[in-house]
Simulated scan of single mutants.
Amino acid sequence: MASKMASCIFCKIVKGEIPCFKLFESDKTLAFLDIMPLSRGHALVIPKVHGEKLTDIPDDHLTEILPIAKKLVIATGAQEYNILQNNGKGAHQEVGHVHFHMIPKPNAQEGLGIGWPQQKTDMDKLKALFEEIKSKM
């Protein structure tokens, strides 16, 4: 884990080794502009503690994330926007440190484009899945 942290670009940003356009900082959270934005105002909100996936981050390091994303929405004036968090390469995660995107969607060309491949469901199978997940909550 130490070697992953040492090479992690977001950990380097947290430590001040790489500069960023810092929008917010607390003891547990950092928000900054994305340097390869999908639209004007595209920003990232990250926990300062290193973890590759959401399940690797302690709950108390996640409490500020959505309130900060909300402040970014207000500060940018975005009327339509996406809050996005990817886990794993197959789910389009590029940097192996948990990060949340706030991506303004000002028009059809800018911002996040999404495919939503809905699948038909069998209600009996859905009920069984519901019972399985609910029992583990």
Results as ranks from 00 to 15, higher is better:
residue 1 M to Q: 08
residue 3 S to Q: 13
residue 6 A to W: 01
residue 7 S to E: 15
residue 8 C to Q: 06
residue 9 I to K: 11
residue 9 I to Y: 01
residue 12 K to N: 10
residue 13 I to C: 07
residue 19 P to N: 12
residue 20 C to N: 13
residue 21 F to L: 04
residue 22 K to W: 00
residue 23 L to T: 01
residue 25 E to S: 11
residue 28 K to A: 07
residue 28 K to F: 02
residue 28 K to M: 03
residue 29 T to W: 01
residue 31 A to Y: 00
residue 33 L to T: 04
residue 33 L to V: 10
residue 34 D to A: 08
residue 40 R to M: 02
residue 40 R to H: 11
residue 41 G to D: 09
residue 43 A to W: 02
residue 44 L to T: 07
residue 44 L to G: 08
residue 45 V to Q: 03
residue 49 V to G: 04
residue 50 H to G: 11
residue 51 G to A: 11
residue 52 E to K: 15
residue 54 L to I: 15
residue 54 L to S: 09
residue 54 L to H: 06
residue 55 T to A: 14
residue 57 I to L: 08
residue 60 D to Y: 09
residue 61 H to V: 00
residue 66 L to E: 05
residue 68 I to E: 02
residue 70 K to S: 12
residue 70 K to I: 00
residue 70 K to Q: 14
residue 73 V to N: 08
residue 73 V to I: 15
residue 75 A to W: 02
residue 76 T to W: 03
residue 77 G to S: 09
residue 82 N to T: 11
residue 82 N to E: 01
residue 83 I to T: 06
residue 84 L to A: 14
residue 84 L to H: 03
residue 86 N to T: 13
residue 86 N to E: 10
residue 89 K to L: 10
residue 90 G to V: 05
residue 92 H to E: 15
residue 94 E to S: 15
residue 95 V to P: 03
residue 96 G to A: 15
residue 96 G to H: 12
residue 96 G to R: 07
residue 100 F to D: 00
residue 103 I to H: 05
residue 109 Q to A: 13
residue 112 L to Y: 04
residue 114 I to V: 15
residue 114 I to T: 11
residue 115 G to Y: 13
residue 115 G to R: 13
residue 117 P to R: 12
residue 119 Q to F: 02
residue 119 Q to V: 12
residue 120 K to Q: 12
residue 125 K to Q: 14
residue 127 K to I: 07
residue 129 L to A: 13
residue 129 L to S: 12
residue 131 E to C: 01
residue 136 K to T: 13
